[in-house]
Computed example of a mutant assay.
Amino acid sequence: MFSPQGPSLGELCVQALSSVERGYDLLAPKFDHTPFRTPESILGATAHALSELGPFNHGLDVCCGTGAGMLVLRSLCEGRITGVDFSAGMLGWARSAHPDATWVRADARALPFAEHFDLAVTFGALGHFLPTERPALFEGVYRALRPGGLFAFPIGAPAPLTSVSYWATLGFDLAMRVRNAVWRPPFVMYYRTGPLSAVRDDLTAAGFTATAAALTVLGRHRDGSPRYWLILARKPADQH
């Protein structure tokens, strides 16, 4: 599961018993050597799909981590690209990898931007927000985008009930719920709290026009359904 350069079991245990912020501060030096980093296949599929909708000027990666999403923004944006995250450790590694980008430390539930970006993306971060927190996240991204701006992110489709993935994610979420019930501070990371329909409803409530495009290049489940969708949430061009 992990490369030799990745974290040890002991390190993962310490991180898992920390807060989300502290856990990622500790994980940052080895994060790119774990399965938690967004795979190149997903980054590439997202960039390819968005290339037909650009070019864009300024770009924002929300919950940027060590900066994997910068590879997508750099290929699509003609202006400045910015990453925002609340982990100082993750931002430090991102800054070293992409010194030409702008880096901002902030809570994604209270983004400090107003109508500055043409494209916003996020990768693998929705599981860190409880359903009650998604509205604040989406409303912040909405404010950060210029009229007509686009918020895009890949989201995994539900795995079939008969698949190993279904039971693995169910087991992980149950384990995290038990951990958070008996240990403080909480570590919010769930795989099954953001179904496609609920995410689209929250985006619509924030003011976006939300659609979903199948990322079929990333494969299909046995029943023929796509494994991943690309959410495309557009801020209306006319705000009046």
Score class of each variant (00 low, 15 high):
residue 2 F to I: 09
residue 4 P to R: 00
residue 15 Q to W: 03
residue 16 A to V: 14
residue 17 L to S: 09
residue 21 E to V: 15
residue 22 R to P: 11
residue 24 Y to H: 07
residue 27 L to I: 08
residue 31 F to N: 00
residue 34 T to A: 06
residue 37 R to D: 06
residue 38 T to P: 00
residue 39 P to T: 01
residue 39 P to H: 09
residue 40 E to V: 10
residue 44 G to V: 03
residue 45 A to W: 02
residue 46 T to N: 02
residue 49 A to W: 04
residue 50 L to E: 01
residue 52 E to Q: 12
residue 52 E to P: 00
residue 57 N to R: 08
residue 58 H to N: 12
residue 58 H to I: 01
residue 67 G to S: 07
residue 70 M to I: 08
residue 72 V to Y: 08
residue 75 S to R: 11
residue 75 S to H: 11
residue 77 C to D: 14
residue 83 G to P: 12
residue 83 G to K: 06
residue 83 G to N: 09
residue 88 A to I: 10
residue 89 G to C: 09
residue 89 G to N: 15
residue 89 G to R: 05
residue 94 A to D: 05
residue 97 A to N: 10
residue 101 A to S: 12
residue 106 A to K: 13
residue 110 A to D: 08
residue 113 F to R: 04
residue 115 E to Y: 00
residue 115 E to V: 08
residue 116 H to R: 15
residue 118 D to N: 14
residue 120 A to M: 05
residue 124 G to H: 01
residue 127 G to N: 00
residue 128 H to M: 15
residue 130 L to E: 12
residue 133 E to L: 07
residue 133 E to T: 10
residue 134 R to C: 07
residue 141 V to Q: 03
residue 141 V to A: 00
residue 141 V to H: 10
residue 143 R to I: 03
residue 144 A to Q: 04
residue 146 R to Q: 15
residue 149 G to N: 08
residue 150 L to V: 04
residue 155 I to Y: 04
residue 156 G to L: 06
residue 158 P to R: 14
residue 159 A to P: 00
residue 160 P to G: 07
residue 163 S to R: 01
residue 167 W to K: 12
residue 167 W to Y: 06
residue 171 G to I: 06
residue 172 F to Q: 05
residue 173 D to M: 06
residue 177 R to L: 15
residue 178 V to F: 14
residue 178 V to G: 03
residue 184 R to P: 04
residue 186 P to A: 06
residue 186 P to N: 13
residue 188 V to F: 12
residue 189 M to V: 08
residue 193 T to D: 13
residue 194 G to L: 13
residue 194 G to F: 14
residue 194 G to S: 13
residue 194 G to N: 07
residue 198 A to P: 04
residue 198 A to Y: 03
residue 198 A to L: 10
residue 201 D to N: 02
residue 205 A to L: 13
residue 207 G to P: 08
residue 207 G to Q: 02
residue 208 F to W: 01
residue 209 T to Q: 10
residue 212 A to Y: 04
residue 213 A to V: 15
residue 216 T to P: 02
residue 217 V to S: 11
residue 226 P to S: 09
residue 227 R to Q: 14
residue 229 W to L: 08
residue 232 L to Q: 03
residue 238 D to S: 12
residue 238 D to L: 14
